[in-house]
Amino acid sequence: MTNPDPKGPDPKGRGGRPSVCFLYIAQTHQILHSLPIAIALAKGWPDIDVQIATTTQEHLDYVRELLETLKVPPIPSRLLPPAWLRSLRLKGASTPPKALMLAANARRLARYDAVVTPERTTALLRKLGVKDTKLVYTQHGAGDRGGPFEPRLKQFDLVMAAGPKQRDRMLDEGWVTPQTCAMVGYPKFDIIDALPGSPLPVFAQAKPLVVYNPHFHPTLGSWPKWGRRILEQFAADDRYNLIFAPHIRVFEGADPRTIEALAPFVGHPRIHLDLGGPAAIDMTYTRAADIYLGDVSSQVYEFLRTPKPCLFLNPSHADWRGDESFHHWLYGPVVDSPEGVVDAVASARRGHGDYVEAQKRGFAESFDLRETPSSVRAAQAIVDRLPAMKHASR
């Protein structure tokens, strides 16, 4: 299906077919946000040379597994050199240092007509002398947190938006222009709908299922201050089954058995711990859960593809009302203390009717979904916006 040589093909020169590299240098969860665009581009525009490059064998294996499962046309894939740098991990990271990998491969990436990425560090290529290659940022979520709205967006020739909320904020804050932004929907939904999904944990008894999804933000994320107390309360209360699926960066690369705070909950009959496996990133949990418990993760919007009860945690006591970075906190109650959290979940379930319309509006503002698949719209945006692609046939 994919090129069996881990070194893979070299980039094409500019005299040949237009070439596009889909680049993966960050955590695994980002792959699902741009790989469907690579598939759509390769299937729909055969005159464009689509390639995939990763910085870890794990990422390469995951990409190839997805392509094989989906039975799509072959897309050449490769590991970026050098091997010694690929093996370097700093502070427990699951990937080699992004900036160093970009520096080591700047000349190679400069030979593509376009580099497509779901993360913003790739903007560094501009400072590394990559001037002619077009840079495309797909995003890797449709959340409200202010961090992703930042100056590096200006370095990209094309920035995608999932819906009007994301597009309008980027335009209003001056990070993009109408010419450099395309509203394409949410390509991740396309690949999720096409995949079989990961197995769900088996609990001893069927109970309403809560997914607790804390973010990695050091102050807005609820794990550092409240997380263990929340798990203790669910462990002591038999009303719910709980999936603890934090953002992959909270415990990056760790095993639950190695984390002292999680040790009491390993093997608990009503608590399942997943610190970054496939089910934690492919919407298996957000689709299956009955209640969402979290803070500022964009995964709440994936959960709300079907309106369901939410409860939000405010460990920093943020003054959130009227702040667009906390817009999703309009979709359920917000608590300022971890005490009584299980009772608060029960209350959120009973009062869900008060939030259904807000959830529906918020989802529609976040995702511009149409009959044409989002991944195809995103591929079309690349072809339309980047001069080297315009004459490629579909």
Results as ranks from 00 to 15, higher is better:
H352W: 05
A344K: 13
G340P: 09
G340L: 06
D368R: 10
V356M: 10
T372R: 13
F363P: 02
A344E: 09
V345C: 15
E365R: 08
R350M: 04
L369P: 08
R370A: 10
E357G: 08
S347V: 03
V342C: 10
D343L: 08
F363E: 00
R349A: 10
G353Y: 02
E365D: 11
A348N: 05
T372D: 03
D354V: 06
R350W: 02
R350L: 07
A348Q: 05
F367S: 00
Y355T: 01
P373R: 07
T372I: 09
K360C: 01
R370W: 03
G362V: 00
R361C: 02
H352F: 13
P338N: 04
A358R: 15
V341T: 12
V356G: 08
E357I: 02
H352V: 04
A344V: 06
V356P: 09
D336T: 14
K360W: 00
D336N: 15
G351H: 13
S347Q: 11
T372F: 04
H352P: 02
A346W: 05
S337I: 04
D343G: 14
P373S: 04
V356Q: 11
D368Q: 07
S366H: 07
S366C: 04
R349H: 06
Y355F: 15
S337R: 15
A364D: 12
R361M: 05
T372N: 05
E339C: 08
V342Y: 13
Y355G: 01
A348E: 03
D368M: 04
E365Q: 09
V341W: 10
Q359F: 11
Q359H: 11
E339S: 13
E357M: 10
T372P: 06
S366D: 00
S347D: 07
T372C: 04
A364K: 13
Y355S: 03
E365H: 02
D336W: 15
D343C: 08
V342F: 14
V342N: 08
R361S: 08
R361L: 10
A344T: 07
S337E: 12
V345A: 03
A358P: 01
G351D: 11
G351Q: 11
R361I: 06
A346G: 15
V341L: 10
V345W: 00
V335P: 12
D343R: 14
D354A: 15
D354W: 07
A344N: 09
F367Y: 14
G362K: 00
S347C: 02
A364S: 12
Q359I: 05
D336A: 14
G351T: 11
K360V: 05
A364T: 09
P338Q: 03
E365P: 00
G362A: 00
A358L: 12
D354F: 12
R349Q: 09
E371T: 13
G362M: 00
V335S: 08
P338R: 01
R361H: 11
D343S: 12
A364F: 05
A364W: 04
